[in-house]
Every structure is written in C-alpha cells, then in structure tokens.
Write a protein that binds this DNA or RNA. Structure first.
Length: 592
RNA sequence: CGGGGUGUAGCGCAGUUUGGUAGCGCAACUGGUUUGGGACCAGUGGGCCGCGGGUUCAAAUCCUGCCACCCCGACCA
C-alpha cells in the first residue's frame, strides 16, 4: 500500500475532549473519528485493526467449532416481548418503528434472535451440542458514552451462544469458550485477568469477566497474585475476621456530643474503629416506586458496604433501593441520624453483616441524639432479620481463597462469559427432542467480546509518548517503508522493490512515499505504531537501509536482503501474538 | 437522571467582563526555496461565532428558551 495514494490525516494536537491517552492517540493517528456521542467513524488504518482483532476472534471461535452466522441488527419487538426484556431492559434499549408503527429494536445483544433461529432450525438431540456466533455492530443507547471506544452507543461485538442437552454439557461448552478467550486476549498481547463476576440482569448461574488491566478501566478488580484469585468488587467474597474472645461487659450508654461519624466517635471514646458498628439506612421501593420497607444495615466500623450484596440479600432489583431520608425514617424506626444502633429498632428489616456475629463489647449508636452505647454484644443485645456478608473486599484484606492480602486494580472489561441456563430456551420455547421424542429446553450459555473496546484496550497498554505501539498481531500493517527523499528515484525504486518482495512473502507493507519532509514521516510512523520500520535513505545506492522496531529505540543498518529477511522472520514469529501458546488438544478442551 | 464545564474555520484556541459586524497557530490551496525527526518566504481560500426568541441604531459579546458535546456521579447484557 502506498501512502501517496491513500488517505492518512494525522493530528499534531489531541482533541480537547479526549481524556484517555489511548483515545487521544487513536484520534491523532486518524484511526477513529467521532460522529456523535458514542458513534464513531473508522478511517482506513483503524478499520484494518478492527478487522485484525475480529480475525483473531474468528479463528479461535472457528477452532472450537463455533459456527459463524449472521443475524439481523433490527429485531422485531415481539421476540423481546417473549422474554420480557422489551419491558425490563430500560432506556438503553434502542427502539425504532417502521412506517406502519410496528416496534423494532436495534440489538444490544442477541439472545432472542439466536434462540429464535435455533428453535426454527434445530430440533434433535442428534445435532447437539452446537454453538453459534456472529460479529456485528451492537446498539445501546448509553446515558453517558465516554472514553473513546471504551463506552459507545454503537460498537462491534462478537457474541456467541452455546446450546446443550444438559447442565454438564453446558459446563464443557463454557470451558471451551473460556479457553478460547484466554487465547484471544493473549494473541492481542493484553495483560488481563479473568475475574469472577456478578451475573447482572442477564441472569444465569456463573460468569467470568476478562478484564484488561488499566488505571482507567471501569470495572474494579481485586486479585491475588499468590493463588490467582480474581473477582470484581461487587462479587468478591470477604473473609470474616474472627471476633476477639473477651468477657461480655454490661451495656452502657455514653454521652458523645456531635459525633456523627465513626471516626468521630472512636476518636472521642478512644476506641479502635474495629470495635465500632456502623449503621446504614435504606428505603426500598416497589415496582410503582412507592416506598416499601425500611432497611438498616450494620457492619463493622472499618468496613464498606457492598450494595450488590445487600440487594442480593434482600432479593430485590437493584434500582429499587436508596439511602433513606433519616428525618422521615427516624420516627418510624426509632433511629436517630448519626446515632443509629441495632438496639431498640422497630418497623424495619435489620441486615447484620456476618462478621458481627460473635462480636462482644462493641460501640454502636444509641438511637438517641448525642449518645452511643458501648459493650454491645451480638446475640445478647441484638440480632438481625438477615445475617450475611454485605461488606466490600478492599485492597490489603485477606484473600478469600488463600488468606494473603489482595491487590486492587481497575480493568477494562473486554469479554464476559455467562451460563444462561434455561432462561431463554424456556421463555421462548426453544426445545430439542430426546431419544424418546420428548421435548427439552436447551441449556444455553452466552459469550461476548467487545471488539472495538479491545482495540482501544490494546492501545491503552501499548503506547509511549510518541504514539501507539501496535502488537504485530493487530497492527494495521506489519512494516512501514519510509522513503527519506521522495524526489530521489533510487530511493523510491528501492522502496517499491522492498514493498513488492515483502508482499510476495505475505507481509503487509505500507510505503510512505509522500512528498513530505522526513521528520513528518518519522513522526507519523511512530504515531500510527507500525511495528517494523524500514527507512530507505542516503545509503539506498549501496543497497542498504535502516531497520528499526517501533518498540525499540535503536536502529541498525542492514542490506536490503537482510532487512527483508529479518522483517519476514519477525512477522512470522509474532503475527499470531507474541505470547501465543500451543493449541489446546481436544482432550483438554473436553476435559471439563 | 443529578452536579459542573464548553460550544467561534477541519484541529487547538483568543476575542465575551466594558456591544460597533471576527482573529491567531496548525491543517488546506498557489508559487518559490528546502529535505535524516512535525521547514521557511510570499500569497489564497475557508465562519448562519451551536439553534431560536428578545433588548438595542448595532449582538460572538447582554437577557431568555432549547440543543449538542465533555467531565464527576447515578446507571451500564
């Protein structure tokens, strides 16, 4: 490809509205361009990389016999009404109408249309198991698109769906996808963690997120380098600290003027924070948004509440709970804002964190202005309606698997896999006949990868102050041949010879034969991040060129033949990913 | 959806306080000199100053309504 005949308009300055380095670089390198909030155009180089990422995903899906098909972007609302998601999905679902006023959606995910396809096309146990996928644009009318390609309203996603006869078979299918994902993100040269995740509204029994580590990611991950545990903050289990054994003392009411926070109280009473009980009050709402229950939660003073765990414990939808207005709930429950404690409450659901079980001589609010109680003991003085883990695992806390301190990092969620179970097959009546002619619903799983998000996550992990440093596996071109003097026929001819030879070897080459000053070309080459640069300059007459890797600062002078051989060898070595590991055997894939 | 910010040439910005009909750098176009890390000289083109309404002899500038975009939060199969 010759740059003189192709469009490339790089920017010296970053767009003012970009925050992330990866976002700025993709825009500056002319790989993406925003059309509207969360809606992007993909110029040539950007689209090539999109296609490279897609191809890696495609190869690994094909390898595990997942069949590529293509489903429409526009789905009739009827399908979504069958599963109820037409009503449950909320404003993020992009709804459209045809000229006759019929409802349709632009698909944000494709459980419905795949299940519909399967119930129309498949019918026998003889054809099981099977799995399907496609790679297409998805639509979610996000309230707040942001960070370039990380959160958009239109994005490319690979979504796969597996269909099995039994729950055990589903597990095998799930693990096959799991291994394929490991290979995909390794080939993309991403530093990622596989984390146990909350299932969210999609439902099902098990889920893993594949998160590329990055300070700007939107998912919070706790992980343990010692045992390999990794989980999202929502999901991470906490280890209850064993209560200190000591003799119960009689409860005592103490005057603690103006001490509304845990720190204030503990400082005032000279108590360690771990000896205090923190109270949090919520109001739940029913589906008509009318206030329903008052909920009071108690956790140890140094802990943080985990809303997801609380909502799960209460078995209510996530949106139907809010921090209580204690001026209103106080008179009902007998609590006093800032001085709420577990003794003497009424008309409320009391949720006690499991860690408080067995604790003695704790400090808690007295439900009386400016007063606290000390020597409060679980069991003797209070208990709860619900006792469970409602606290958040934090950096430095004990790992729930091995007890070592856990680490905290943010991650960009590039993939997620779910076991769906029977949720969609039952609601849409997608069944197969067994040996006896009896109908059974499929055990389903779904598996997503954000292609465009992955592309930006790669940039987030692979760049320097000069620009992007694409891994070979996803680079828009493997080699850039920079012609120093485009008026020099010797240089130009040599550059085109190199192009021809490398292309005949299957190497993807772009020649910067533009009539620009060398500095412009070098800076552009660095910005767009082509892995190998071959510079044709003043030594062209002697058949010598410079060979330089984008990721290294030094270059070397080689003969043309040497440079070509070296480039070819490196491309062969890295085109499938620098850390590519051997293909898994069928036995390994089916071992689960 | 709450809080904050910004809308002026393709990109980055000044001008708005104190109203007088728009400017700088980069990019683009023409000619010339240049050519190993974002050249220089001379010239050219390009603006419903986000949109509507109002005040005024006169509005990018003041008032007002709306819209878009960005940031924080909420939300996020």
């Amino acid at each position: 490809m010759r740059l003189s005949k192709n469009h490339l308009k790089t920017l010296r300055e970053a767009p003012a509205d970009a925050v992330l380095e990866s976002h700025k670089l993709l825009v500056r390198a002319n790989m993406i361009k925003q059309e509207a909030a969360g809606i992007y155009m993909y110029p040539k180089l950007g689209w090539r990389t999109v296609r490279k990422v897609e191809q890696i995903v495609r190869e690994e899906m094909d390898y595990i016999d997942c069949q590529e098909i293509y489903m429409p972007h526009v789905n009739p609302a009827e399908l979504w009404k069958e599963t109820g998601r037409w009503y449950a999905y909320g404003p993020e679902l992009w709804r459209i109408q045809d000229r006759n006023g019929n409802d349709f959606i632009l698909n944000p995910t494709c459980e419905e249309i795949f299940t519909d396809f399967v119930r129309k096309e498949w019918s026998s146990y003889r054809e099981l198991p099977f799995s399907l996928y496609h790679i297409q644009f998805k639509y979610r009318d996000e309230s707040r698109p942001r960070y370039g390609l990380l959160r958009t309203r239109e994005f490319i996603m690979k979504d796969a769906y597996t269909f099995d006869a039994t729950e055990e078979d589903l597990h095998t299918a799930y693990m096959r996808q799991y291994h394929a994902y490991e290979k995909i993100f390794t080939r993309c040269d991403l530093d990622y963690r596989i984390v146990e995740a909350d299932n969210g509204p999609i439902g099902g029994s098990k889920s893993h997120e594949f998160s590329a580590l990055s300070d700007w990611g939107e998912s919070d991950i706790l992980y343990c380098d010692h045992c390999g545990m990794a989980a999202t903050v929502e999901r991470a289990e906490c280890v209850d600290e064993k209560p200190v054994e000591e003799e119960m003392l009689p409860v005592e009411k103490v005057f603690t003027p103006g001490t509304k926070t845990i720190d204030d109280v503990c400082a005032y009473l000279k108590l360690p924070v771990k000896k205090s009980i923190k109270a949090l009050m919520f109001t739940t709402y029913d589906t008509d948004l009318q206030p329903k229950d008052n909920v009071v939660c108690f956790i140890r003073g140094d802990r943080q509440l985990n809303m997801i765990k609380l909502v799960n414990a209460l078995n209510i939808p996530e949106h139907y709970i809010e921090f209580a207005n204690e001026d209103i709930t106080g008179p009902i429950t007998g609590s006093v804002a800032g001085f709420t404690g577990p003794m003497g409450l009424k008309n409320c659901i009391v949720v006690v964190d499991s860690e408080l079980v067995g604790t003695v001589n704790m400090c808690a609010g007295a439900n009386e202005e400016d007063h606290h109680l000390i020597n409060v003991c679980y069991g003797r003085d209070y208990t709860g309606d619900i006792i469970t883990d409602i606290k958040t695992l934090q950096e430095g806390d004990a790992c729930p698997h091995c007890g070592k301190p856990v680490k905290f990092r943010r991650g960009i969620e590039v993939g997620q896999i779910f076991k769906l179970g029977l949720k969609y097959s039952e609601s849409m009546n997608a069944t197969f006949k067994d040996e006896n002619g009896v109908d059974h619903p499929y055990w389903m799983g779904c598996y997503g990868i954000g292609i465009t998000r992955t592309m930006q996550a790669i940039v987030e992990q692979h760049h320097d102050e000069k620009g992007i440093i694409w891994p070979m596996s996803v680079a828009p071109y493997h080699v850039i041949v920079t012609v120093v003097k485009s008026h020099d026929d010797t240089q130009m001819q040599l550059a085109y010879d190199i192009e021809k030879k490398l292309e005949s070897m299957g190497v993807e080459v772009m020649v910067d034969d533009r009539d620009e000053r060398p500095g412009v070309k070098f800076n552009d080459a660095d910005l767009i991040g082509i892995p190998i640069r071959i510079t044709v300059g003043k030594l062209a007459g002697e058949g010598k060129v410079e060979y330089k890797l984008r990721r290294e600062s030094e270059h070397e002078t080689l003969t043309v033949e040497e440079a070509i051989a070296k480039a070819k060898a490196l491309v062969d070595e890295e085109r499938d990913g620098r850390c590519f590991f051997s293909r898994l055997s069928e036995e390994t894939l089916n071992a689960h």
